[in-house]
Design a protein around this nucleic acid. Sequence first.
DNA 1: GACCGTCTTTGCGCTAGCGCAAATTCTCGC
DNA 2: GCGAGAATTTGCGCTAGCGCAAAGACGGTC
Lengths: 233, 233
Amino acid sequence: MPGLDPSLIADLPSFSGLERRELETLLGYAQPLRYSEGATVFAQGDEAESFYVLLDGHIRVVRSTPEGQQVIVRYISVGELFGIAAALGRSTYPASAVAAAECVALAWPNAKWDELTARFPSLGANTYKTVGGRLQDAHTRVVEMSTEQVEQRVAHALLRLVKQTGRKTAEGVEIDFPITRQDIAEMTGATLHTVSRVLQAWEKDGIVRGGRKRVVVISPHRLLLKAEARKES
Amino acid sequence: MPGLDPSLIADLPSFSGLERRELETLLGYAQPLRYSEGATVFAQGDEAESFYVLLDGHIRVVRSTPEGQQVIVRYISVGELFGIAAALGRSTYPASAVAAAECVALAWPNAKWDELTARFPSLGANTYKTVGGRLQDAHTRVVEMSTEQVEQRVAHALLRLVKQTGRKTAEGVEIDFPITRQDIAEMTGATLHTVSRVLQAWEKDGIVRGGRKRVVVISPHRLLLKAEARKES
DNA sequence: GACCGTCTTTGCGCTAGCGCAAATTCTCGC
DNA sequence: GCGAGAATTTGCGCTAGCGCAAAGACGGTC
C-alpha cells in the first residue's frame, strides 16, 4: 500500500512524536477509505474488524435500541480515533458509525492493534486519555439527562458542537456539517418538534439562526445562559 | 508496610496471573484503608492522589452538578479498580466516592501507576477492559435516559444492581447493601416520590419487596418485563 | 420504653413536553 | 422553471411525572 503521504497523520494527536520512518510503517498497514454523506462505516453489532482514524469530515456515532430508536452518542471529528471496540475488549461494535458529511478515514486491521501499541507506545498512552475523556463526556451526558430540562440540554448540545466543530462566519459560529433538528433531538433525548420550537424561540431572540440542516450560533454567551439557567427568560 | 497477605488480592481480576512474589511487591506499595458507611473516600474535584481496589463493601460513585444536585454514576463492587482518574489523564477526581456500606480498600499512590503498569502488564491490559466496559455502561445509561420511561429505568437499575450485587435469600434476590429510594432516584433521574410509587405498585404485584433501605427482587423475570415493556400492565 | 431523626408513603394540582396532524418551506434533480 | 421529497414549523390535546405538603413507619439512642 505505497503512496500514502506520512504528513497525512503526522499532526494527529494520537500519532504525534513519531518519526517519519515510523509513520511510514504505520501507513503501510493502513487502508484509506472514503465515505459519502449518510454512508455507514460500520454498524452496531458487526464483528469488530478494524479501527479507524478520521482524516476529514465528521462521523456520527449512533446506538439503536432493540425497539429501533436511535440515540446519537457522539460526533467524531478530524484526527480522532474511532471503532476501537476491540482494544477495549469487545468483539463487536457497540454502536454504528455513519458519515455526517463527506469523510476520509484510515483503517487498520484489528489484529495489528497489539503490535502497533507495543511498537508505538504513544498510541497506547493516547488511547487511555481518549477513552478517559469519552467516559467523562458520557457521564456528563448522563448527569445532564438526569437533571436538566430539554431547553438546557439542547443548549449544552449546541455549545458542545460549536466547541468541537464550530466554524467562524460573518454572522457567528456555524456547525460545520449538515445537522437536522432530528439529529439534535437524538442527541438530547427530545422530539424534533420540541427542538424545533426551542430553536425557533431562540431565533426570535437572536441567539441562533437556523436553516435547513444548518445551525449558526450568533451569541454563544446568551446560549450559555440558556444552558445554565434553571427556568428564566 | 509488611504484613499484608498476598491472598487478599490474588483472586482479583485486575491482578490475576501474577505470582506470589509479584503480589508481595504490589502490596508493599499499598495502603490498606477502612471506611464506615457514608464515609467519603475522595471528593469530586480533589487532587487525584491515589487509585484504589475495593476489597470489601460497596462504593457509590456520585457526581454533583454546580446546582448541587447529585447523580449516582455507578456502584463499585468487590475486586474493582476505582479512582483511576489520573491514569486516564485527569488531575482531579471527576466524581466523589462514598462508602455505601462498611468498606475495605487498598490505595496506591498515583505516582506508582506508570511503574506498576510497566512492571505488571496484565494490570494495564485489564484497565483497558475495565474502562471500556464502563464507557459501554455509561452509553447504555444515556440511551436509557433518552428513550425510556421512569418505570423502565427503575426496573433496569434494579436488575443491574441485582446482577452486580445480588444476594440470594429465601424470598428472592436482595440488594446487598443499604439503598434508599432517594439513591434509586439519583440513579434513574427520577424523584424519590415517583420511585416510591413505582416500587409500591410492584410490591402489590409481588414483583419486589421493599423495606427501610432494602429492596428484595422476588421475580426478576417479571421485573425484566417491566424493563422492556413500553407501556403495559 | 419513650423520643427523635431518617426514610417512606400518599394525595393533589400543575406543567413540560410528547403524540398526532397538517401546513409550509427548502433543495435538488430534471 | 417545475415538481417531489425531505426538512421544518406550528397548533392542540393529553399525560407522565414533578413539586409541594403532610402523614405515617422504622430503628437507633439514652
